[in-house]
Simulated scan of single mutants.
Amino acid sequence: ARAGLEPDSALERRLPGLRRLGARPYGILGDSHGRHLIRRGQRHGTWLAPLAHLASSASARGLGRADGRSGTGPKVAAALERLLAIDDLPILMKFGQVDIEFVQVFKRLAAGEDRFSPEAFDAFADETIALYVAFLAGVVPAAQRSRVRVLSLFPPALSDDSWREGYLNAHMVAVHGPPDTGDLTARLGRLDIPNLAQRTALHAAFNERLQAAVEVEGFRWGDDFSPWLGGDGLLDPAWLGPAAGRDHHLDLPAARWRALDWLWPILE
């Protein structure tokens, strides 16, 4: 899946033959949560052929910045342009989770904002969405936007007890965290953090605003939030696997069949 977008992959030459053999190719660009959209499956003689470019820890708000700390924006733009050049190829975009779960928290640390402010969160969300949509609109011509489906955030997976432990993720801290990490544990301990139900509601509200913003610009929308909820309105523990609550990702093996059931109708 990942090799398909390498410069020497001969992707464009190989795709017609793969399609004749029953391949259903699609593009997926995203942060590490996009791994759940890289799936192999077969239905009625057609098999999924994902062409992926993932940028672990990438921020949606930083994609339009050539000088962003993750340095992934130009690479994502180049991969998106290459996928757009392939006729009849649906493209999925999966960014934003890093911003809401990590970037806004580290910005609170930098500003010394120990108390959680719904107003400050809303302002951060609006700015993130505006920057993300501006990046997409700058790369994707208006006539091509119906091929691009922007996906929602997943529901949050970190439990209340594991929240601070999850934020000590070394890679995420290196990309988005404060320059001085010596007392990070203590500083995180002082933060006022919404509980899991409240964080789930914040994700849902972000998704609603992102959907409205991308649809105004002619992009399509994909609900990757509600399919994962349980009867209590929170992330169903069935998708969490052995690291339940201690990892901000869904569990890949546990979520495999649910992801496939979601992917087929999206791509069709």
Rank of each mutant, 00 (worst) to 15 (best):
L18F: 09
A1P: 04
D87N: 15
P237A: 00
G4A: 08
F206N: 08
V216H: 00
D88N: 15
L63I: 05
L109V: 13
L54T: 07
P16S: 11
G45C: 04
R39F: 10
L168S: 02
S70F: 11
A134E: 15
R43F: 01
M172L: 15
I28P: 02
L37R: 03
G30F: 11
A10H: 12
D88Y: 05
R69Y: 04
Q198C: 05
L234M: 09
P265I: 13
E127M: 13
L80M: 09
Q144E: 15
F135C: 14
A1K: 02
G64T: 05
L168H: 10
F102H: 11
L235Y: 00
D161G: 10
H248P: 14
G218S: 09
A52D: 02
A58S: 10
K75A: 15
I91Q: 12
H176P: 01
P141D: 01
F124N: 14
G17W: 08
Q104L: 12
E268Q: 13
L89E: 11
P7M: 13
A60M: 08
I38Q: 11
F154G: 12
L260D: 04
D160G: 04
G230Q: 00
W221T: 02
R14T: 10
L92W: 03
D160C: 03
L151P: 09
L151Y: 03
E208R: 10
H36Q: 10
V214E: 01
T200R: 08
F206P: 05
A134N: 12
R164Q: 02
D31C: 06
V216M: 00
A66L: 15
L83C: 03
D183L: 04
L267C: 13
A1T: 12
L151C: 13
R61F: 09
R13L: 14
V76R: 08
L188S: 00
R149I: 10
L191P: 01
D160V: 06
A134V: 10
L51E: 06
D224M: 06
K75V: 07
D247Q: 07
V148A: 12
A205R: 08
G27A: 11
A60Y: 05
S117T: 09
Q97M: 12
R147E: 06
L191F: 01
P155H: 03
G222D: 00
L54I: 09
